[in-house]
Design a protein around this nucleic acid. Structure first.
Lengths: 204, 204
DNA sequence: TCGGTTTTTGGACCGAGTCCAATAATGGCA
DNA sequence: TGCCATTATTGGACTCGGTCCAAAAACCGA
């Protein structure tokens, strides 16, 4: 459990340092025009050191999002065991959404239009999307009423509900400064999905 | 309408040539280990010529898929104007799905596990996904009963229904040789989504 | 034979990401 | 104090995808 190693050369850098350097540069010259070399230089470390802390440049676009999304496993685990599946998932997603206020908007949102090609953003976006789908799907599959028959439906539900939430997040991001909390957007988007899959999935 | 130009140097190559060369190499050494230079050399053209016909290496993964997906705009346009929105979309998606038989499975499917990182595949996948979502969303937005109020819901529906279809396609792809036609998979996946959004979207 | 047009080509270039071996900085131990 | 294991950092070389540009090649009609 103790992850602070006391042996070996101590770190001279940190994720936070690099994130900060990157944030400055993204503001000055956009994500697309900022190279990893730039970030490393600004942070006062070598280019290779960057890769000790991030596996890709695009990780920087998602630091805030990843932090918020990390709450999903717990939110699912803490769900009412007796409640219907679709209701439980809805509840968990709303709790995660509640973590995103109007304050900090992640780079992945603000830099979207400024990306050279959106493809780099899209790659990293889908990767995250699929992780969340996997979590929901696992949760659905572990449910009492779940059978091999309903597995394809569970997959469809997991994908659709996370996709709807992502659409809501996009809407929210595009709403500008007037956007409120994310949860309301997500609620409107995922409720119909849960309603539609309820009769098929909830053990009944 | 006449796109066969009679002026200028005639083409010495074609998309088909490059696709064929790529197909050979993908079988021999997988997608990941095949470079664009390899493909060009096999096809007997220069590396730059490759980029005259494809904008990215990953385009090759999707030639079959893109061909099938190209039917969506027409399928949407030909939908019954008087039918409910969700029903029309469902109908159009099923028609597109009907174009995919058990025969040819696209590279994007067969090479999935063999990709160095899945990120390249994911990037190109989401790009296509978003195009289809855009088409459906445009269709929904142009409907008589559509208002600015329902626009966020329309976005959520478009995203969720295409995502469900994609989940069905993934299931279908993973079903192995025994997989039948795609349409049945898609039907089971998108029907609940349409059912859930029906009360909210169908003008009523 | 001369222009205009389009395709093809070579070459230079950039940036992301990988790999590896060397080196620096620590703590523990004799 | 000196050695050792461990971990962080570094430089450098390398591959590959993708972009850009200018030149050459192949055709047309005049």
């Amino acid at each position: 459990m103790n992850d602070s190693r006391t042996v070996g050369r101590p770190r001279g850098s940190s994720r936070a340092m690099l994130e900060e350097a990157a944030a400055e540069l993204f503001l000055e010259q956009t994500y697309a025009k900022t190279t990893i070399g730039d970030i490393a230089r600004r942070a006062g470390v070598s280019r290779n050191t960057f890769f000790n802390y991030f596996s890709a440049k695009s990780d920087l676009l998602w630091v805030d999002v990843d932090a918020g999304l990390a709450a999903l496993p717990d939110a699912l685990a803490e769900c009412d065991r007796s409640a219907a599946v679709t209701g439980a998932v809805r509840q968990a997603l709303l709790r995660v959404a509640a973590g995103f206020g109007p304050g900090r908007v992640p780079w992945s949102v603000t830099q979207y239009e400024l990306m050279a090609t959106a493809s780099e953003l899209e790659a990293s976006a889908l990767a995250r999307f699929l992780v969340q789908v996997g979590l929901v799907r696992e949760f659905v599959g572990a449910r009492p009423g779940h059978s091999a028959d309903t597995d394809p439906v569970g997959r469809a539900f997991s994908t659709a509900v996370v996709a709807a939430a992502a659409a809501a997040a996009t809407e929210w991001a595009g709403a500008g400064v007037a956007r409120g909390d994310l949860a309301a957007y997500v609620d409107a988007a995922i409720t119909p999905v849960c309603a539609g899959f309820g009769p098929v999935l909830d053990h009944g």
